[in-house]
Design a binder for these strands. Structure first.
Lengths: 191, 191
DNA sequence: AAGTTCGGCAAACACTTGTTTACTGAATGG
DNA sequence: CCATTCAGTAAACAAGTGTTTGCCGAACTT
């Protein structure tokens, strides 16, 4: 049933999804839906959780494994690109519903992105470059990285669906931007 | 009729909007809708144009007027915050439909954001800090700024609607991030 | 003054929708 | 072996949907 919903959300958004539509796609009767969810919003929240499991795995695989800043940047962009390709429906769902019409879902996504930023912040604190950084500065940097990751993922998504030739250019741009941020980071002093 | 649509899109998204719904809100008969638009998608595109007029004004008011990097950053964040407050429905519409379910609208928004980036890039090229920058580097910097502006605007939007106390913190974070980017910019050498 | 466009209406068409109800078979547990 | 939960069904309900059609008055053009 989650799969059916996710499939329909390829070119629709949650608020315009119908109970009957979902059950039809899943090959079930309309009433069957209510055996599993009270609402369509509930189905949405379930999809958020499903989507973020894979995201957490991804972020760890970026932060783990050492290497200089350059290697880390390259690996990050590669991982994002591959993740979007391999989990397109989930990523699309997140991009679409992050500012979508269903409050519960919006809040679930935002809360989880916040946890992401915290995780990234903790990882940044361990790097030598961050010696002497205040909590606030670390947090703002982590948020900058997360926002950048989200934007990049969304750009990959759109490119993969409409014009795959644009993909390398997006990757190149993202790498340059990360390099610039990392440069600013090295010269940062006090908030 | 545009106003009626915009008002309904406060807690709905375009794909789940109905012709009858719009005309009812506007105090007209359903058939009247088709006198003005063939589709709901067309109404969406019209709203995009309406929304971006005010945005263009905003961006010029940031780029105009000289001043050091610090003043420019402060003014940019202020202008964004005020713009979101004064054009909330339009901004919400853009955030929601940027990755929404209606292809035509998505494309219209993306095209316009691209033009934004070009405009910002041209303005950046005039600043002394950008001497020796390649076209590609300027473009990626402009995109970074535009993406950051979009993220910040979305954050303001959510904060203003759910918990206005968070607003100053968002502004502070955005300023720090812009400062860090501007730092990276000063130390940039060659792509 | 005659004609034409413009923006509006009511009514009708055939569907689709969310949700509830009462019912059914299969698995599960004591 | 009996009871209970589980996951499913069909049928019905009232209400809402997109779109077309034919009609109408006002405003503009010539």
């Amino acid at each position: 049933m989650l799969d059916a919903g996710l499939h329909l959300l390829a070119d629709q958004n949650l608020a315009s999804l119908g109970v009957r539509e979902v059950t039809r796609e899943a090959g079930l009767s309309p009433a069957a839906f209510y055996r599993h969810f009270p609402d369509l919003a509930a189905l949405g929240v379930a999809l958020v959780e499903e989507s973020l499991a894979s995201l957490h795995v991804m972020i760890r695989s970026v932060l783990a494994g050492a290497g200089g800043a350059e290697e880390l940047i390259d690996r990050a962009v590669d991982v994002i690109e591959r993740h979007v390709r391999e989990h397109r429906p989930h990523v699309r769902f997140l991009a679409r519903e992050r500012h979508g019409g269903v409050r519960q879902v919006r809040e679930a996504i935002d809360a989880e992105l916040g946890r992401f930023a915290a995780e990234v912040g903790a990882a940044l604190a361990l790097q030598p470059v961050s010696r002497g950084w205040s909590e606030e500065d670390l947090r703002m940097l982590a948020e900058l990285y997360v926002d950048h990751m989200v934007s990049t993922a969304a750009a990959f998504l759109e490119a993969q669906e409409t014009d795959p030739d644009r993909e390398p250019r997006i990757a190149a741009t993202a790498r340059l931007q990360l390099r610039l941020i990392s440069l600013g980071r090295r010269h940062w002093q006090g908030g």
